[in-house]
């Protein structure tokens, strides 16, 4: 798990940020503080407003109203060299060779020639692309191009790194490689914002989660706190007896529902019953191969939030539209 804030200034502060495109309100009253050194996950479905928020943070587009500061400056324009950005819509110069492309991007970020060649080749070696340095970008596979783009976003050693859907299109091996690199960069003190619509990815990588839905922030907490707030209400049971039926399970006091799943049963508990108490009751009545608390995934939490009309959005904002 990545480290939390390092106790310096906040890397990003956003207050009452709004952005519309015609009739569509892409971001509504966004409030956000990202402490320096943290690894924040921006999660939410496609079209939730994550990329728009990121583009405003990057000063690529500008808010209709609201205030933001990035690395202590009023706008990212003033601190572009200190920020690394891997956009969702990314590409390379197809006809350019890999090494010159990385060097070009580094120079645009203010890196001088001194030691640049070494730094670029080191990075290529680290991601396993040492052999393709002299190849044209168009000759690389999509995954390879993505790694080149990642290098281009970190080559200048940014203080703030924003990664928008960095794993899309990567195979599991490269996904793991990139995940390890992100952790390593965060461990060195770089603040990272990581945006994804695949919530399991954020769950694996981040300890701070910002959930965005319909242009609003609906959740903003450390992952542990989120899990503790959304109490587990279900158990996963693998009985010794494969022929166990639903009635046998629902007859146990405190069991509201029993649903068959791949390896056994998902048991939904009645409100107020502690999971430990329920496990004890079930284990005493059913011969059990394995039983565990089903931890709510971010996806479960997200669905629970957006389906709950009474849920109050984070930071005392308006209620989420159902």
């Amino acid at each position: 798990m990545c480290q939390g804030g390092v106790g310096l200034t906040d890397a990003i502060r956003i207050s009452d940020l709004h952005k519309s495109f015609g009739e569509k309100q892409a971001v509504r009253g966004m409030e956000l503080v990202v402490p320096a050194g943290s690894l924040h996950g921006f999660i939410g479905p496609n079209g939730a407003g994550k990329t728009t928020t990121i583009r405003m943070i990057m000063s690529i587009i500008f808010p209709d109203r609201g205030e933001l500061s990035v690395l202590g400056k009023k706008s990212a324009i003033e601190s572009k060299d200190r920020i690394g950005y891997l956009p969702e819509e990314r590409g390379v110069y197809k006809k350019m060779k890999v090494l010159p492309f990385i060097k070009y991007m580094a120079k645009l970020k203010g890196v001088t020639d001194q030691g640049l060649h070494m730094r670029a080749t080191d990075w290529l070696e680290r991601v396993g692309l040492g052999e393709v340095a002299a190849k044209k970008c168009e000759e690389l596979s999509k995954g390879m191009q993505q790694k080149v783009q990642f290098i281009a976003s970190v080559i200048h050693k940014p203080e703030l790194l924003i990664l928008d859907e960095p794993f899309s299109g990567l195979d599991p091996v490269n996904m793991r490689l990139l995940r390890d690199l992100i952790r390593e960069i965060n461990d060195s003190g770089t603040t990272i914002i990581f945006s994804t619509h695949v919530m399991a990815q954020a769950e694996q990588l981040c300890d701070n989660i910002v959930m965005i839905h319909n242009g609003q922030k609906v959740l903003d907490d450390p992952l542990d706190r989120i899990r503790s707030r959304f109490d587990p209400k279900a158990l996963l049971l693998e009985p010794m007896d494969r022929n166990l039926n639903e009635a046998q399970l629902t007859s146990i006091a405190g069991v509201e529902l029993a649903n068959r799943v791949d390896t056994g049963w998902e048991i939904v508990l009645e409100d107020g019953l502690a999971p430990s108490e329920a496990i004890a009751r079930i284990a005493s009545q059913i011969e059990t191969a394995r039983i565990e608390v089903k931890r709510p995934s971010l996806e479960d939490i997200f669905i629970q939030i957006v389906q709950d009309d009474s849920y109050v959005p984070a930071s005392g904002m308006q209620e989420v539209a159902s």
Binding site: I60, K80, E89, R90, G91, V92, K94, M105, S153
Partner: peptide, 17 residues
Amino acid sequence: VEEKSSRVVEVLLSAVS
């Protein structure tokens, strides 16, 4: 048009205005 269609433009905009 090439920079836009190859999607390299947003990467550039993160470095320059």
